[in-house]
């Protein structure tokens, strides 16, 4: 492998610095002792964290985000794993087209999905409900769960399923007793990413949520847009921490999965 010139290394490092700087500067800011949003902070304390925990509207938005993200995760795993299994193992006419329809929400502009859902849930009388948020987020997360599960299924030996069938197991037993245990790491990784996507999602939530059902990103969006609240660095730090945990755990699970399979 040829060595790189100093110039290309310097250019790459400048780009890395640009990539991680925003995630890093919010952390010291969150320990600032004054309500002014300045970097670097001059004195440190947990004052802004207390303000965040004490703020009733921030707390209710956080609880709502946990609720929506948990339900979305449950729906997307329950729906996405069987679908990924069928698409990976069965051969039937229209399989490619079907796969494309199921993955389409990854590529369609979120604003179009958000407006469609806004009109749809309004006409159903569901706008502003938690159900609308969960359903809206699920269509964004199911494709991720499916992609991760399908990648894992490629490494799982299909002969194991054939063997189980030869020994007399029905299709449902094979799915429950053979496929699901082998898919568990991928399912957990998919669940983690689904949770994170839903927890961070803002465009659909902005269009679909109501006054009582605003999620943390919706509250944060209006706080950045109109009020510039002093607790923003705290929320940012907590969200960055969540991303870091999910990203590391998900990557570790997928790597272990590859190594085992």
């Amino acid at each position: 492998m040829p060595r790189q010139s100093l110039l290309t290394i310097a250019a790459a490092w400048a780009c890395y610095a640009f990539l991680i700087a925003p995630s890093l500067i919010v952390i010291p800011m969150s320990f600032n002792n004054s309500s002014e949003l300045i970097f670097p902070p001059t004195t440190f304390s947990l004052r802004l964290y207390r303000e965040f925990v004490g703020g009733a509207d921030w707390m209710s938005a956080t609880r709502q985000s946990f609720l929506v993200a948990s339900l979305t995760t449950a729906v997307s795993v329950a729906v996405g794993i069987p679908a990924a299994y069928a698409l990976a193992r069965a051969d039937f006419p229209g399989r490619r087209l079907l796969g494309m329809v199921l993955l389409a929400p990854m590529l369609v502009p979120t604003i179009a999905v958000a407006l469609g859902l806004y009109l749809y849930f309004s006409s159903l009388g569901l706008s502003g409900s938690t159900l609308a948020l969960v359903l809206g987020h699920s269509i964004l997360t199911v494709p991720f769960v499916m992609v991760i599960a399908m990648a894992s299924l490629r490494h799982i030996d299909a002969n194991l399923e054939v063997a189980a069938k030869v020994m007399g197991a029905g299709q449902m037993t094979v799915f429950r007793r053979v496929v699901l245990p082998l898919l568990a790491p991928a399912a957990v990784a998919g669940a983690l990413f689904a949770f994170l996507i839903s927890f961070d999602e803002v465009v659909v939530a902005w269009f679909v949520s109501g006054i009582g059902t605003a999620t943390l990103p919706v509250k944060m969006y209006s706080a950045i847009h109109w009020e510039v609240s002093p607790v923003l660095p705290v929320v940012s730090t907590l969200l960055t921490g969540l991303s870091l945990v999910v990203c590391t755990a998900g990557a570790a699970l997928q790597k272990k999965d590859r190594a085992d399979g």
């Binding site: 679908a83 039937f92 469609g116 009109l119 359903l135 269509i139 199911v142």
Partner: peptide, 27 residues
Amino acid sequence: RSRHVALFLAPSLLLMAAVFLVPLGQM
């Protein structure tokens, strides 16, 4: 069997139809 394929795919297709295709169509 196709019966099982349909069973595995049904929930996801139902979700995509009801919460993705129909809303975009309504739009």
